[in-house]
């Protein structure tokens, strides 16, 4: 049963955002070209943090010559500084029907996670953009930075509504075709794509961006026997496509289902590890903040 998205005021919880202040999100290396911010970039020399010495070659900035070393050693070396740049963060939020499916809609958790990532990123002077997908990809908010952007992001998130279809793989590919500057792609979804997990993972593998995958999953997804009426012979109809599958619910088939879900999760986790992507698995039937706190155990996630 579909559910409506919460309003901006409903999920723009000051207490929640305050609790996120200690968290940070670090990309290992950024590509050059961005404006100065707090993310370490591959560029050296323009920043404030001392990194190393190097022999002077013609063309180097003479302002960087360390004259003290020249006086003592007679050699001309220059100081090299690390340059910090902004990290473009692209939020890709799933708004397919499965995210709105009752009795525990995942969209609420998805929006909270998106808001949390936005808050953390903006606090690090990174730019955040919002994209949503279901049957197609839509840009909801162009990348921008500044603390004042948080409310705007909240408003845009609240405007998201349910749409039919789930084409995550196509959405990731579409995002790649936009020619965005390399940054951090945060995928917030249940990853239930009719095209299959392989297609999703392949598209993610092809992405130029660093990845942070936030998988949302509910107890009913993990253990369907908990759900009322799940016994005997049932016709299970997909909430998005409407396709049905007839099942005689036996302990064997329930076990088989659990094994398939477990394998699904395992493959997603393994992909994140191999790809060097960040990975969050959030149970939509539990509180978001404790789960985020557990993920940001050391105060930061390094991607």
């Amino acid at each position: 049963m579909p559910a409506s998205a919460p309003t901006a005021e409903e999920f723009f919880d000051a207490e929640f955002l305050t609790a996120l202040q200690g968290f940070s999100l670090w990309a290992r290396r950024l590509i050059s070209g961005g404006r100065h911010a707090e993310q370490l970039s591959k560029d050296q020399g323009a920043g404030l943090e001392f990194a190393d010495y190097k022999a002077y070659v013609p063309g180097d900035d003479t302002r960087a010559i360390d004259w003290n070393i020249y006086r003592r050693l007679g050699r001309v070396v220059i100081k090299v500084f690390e340059e910090r740049q902004e990290l473009p963060v692209y939020l890709l939020v799933d708004r397919s029907s499965s995210m709105y499916f009752q009795p525990a809609p995942k969209i609420g958790v998805a929006l909270k996670v998106a808001l949390a990532i936005t808050s953390i990123s903006l606090s690090q002077h990174d730019s955040v953009g919002l994209y949503s997908f279901s049957g197609n990809l839509e840009m909801k908010l162009r990348n921008s930075s500044g603390h004042g952007r948080l409310m705007r992001m909240a408003g845009r998130l609240a405007e998201l509504h349910e749409q039919d279809g789930t084409e995550l793989a196509e959405a990731v590919n579409g995002l790649g075709r936009l020619g965005l500057r390399r940054g951090l792609l945060v995928v917030i979804s249940d990853f239930f794509d009719p095209a299959g997990l392989n297609a999703v993972l392949e598209s993610l593998r092809q992405s130029r961006h660093r990845l942070l995958l936030a998988q949302l999953i509910g107890n009913h997804d993990l253990d369907p026997a908990r759900r009322r009426g799940m016994r005997g012979d049932v016709r299970l109809r997909d909430c998005e496509s409407g396709d049905a599958v007839d099942v005689s619910l036996t302990p064997a088939i329930l076990a088989s289902y659990r094994a398939i879900v477990s394998d699904f999760n395992e493959r997603l986790t393994r992909f994140a590890t191999e790809r060097g992507a960040g990975f969050l698995r959030l149970n939509t039937d539990e509180e978001v903040l404790p789960q985020l706190a557990a993920a940001f155990e050391a105060g930061s996630i390094e991607i």
Binding site: D190, D233, R235, L236, R237, D238, A244, V247, Y257
Partner: peptide
Amino acid sequence: YTEIVVPTAMFWREA
């Protein structure tokens, strides 16, 4: 059959 709408039909189909 008792009809139930689920978001995980893809898993059930496989099971």
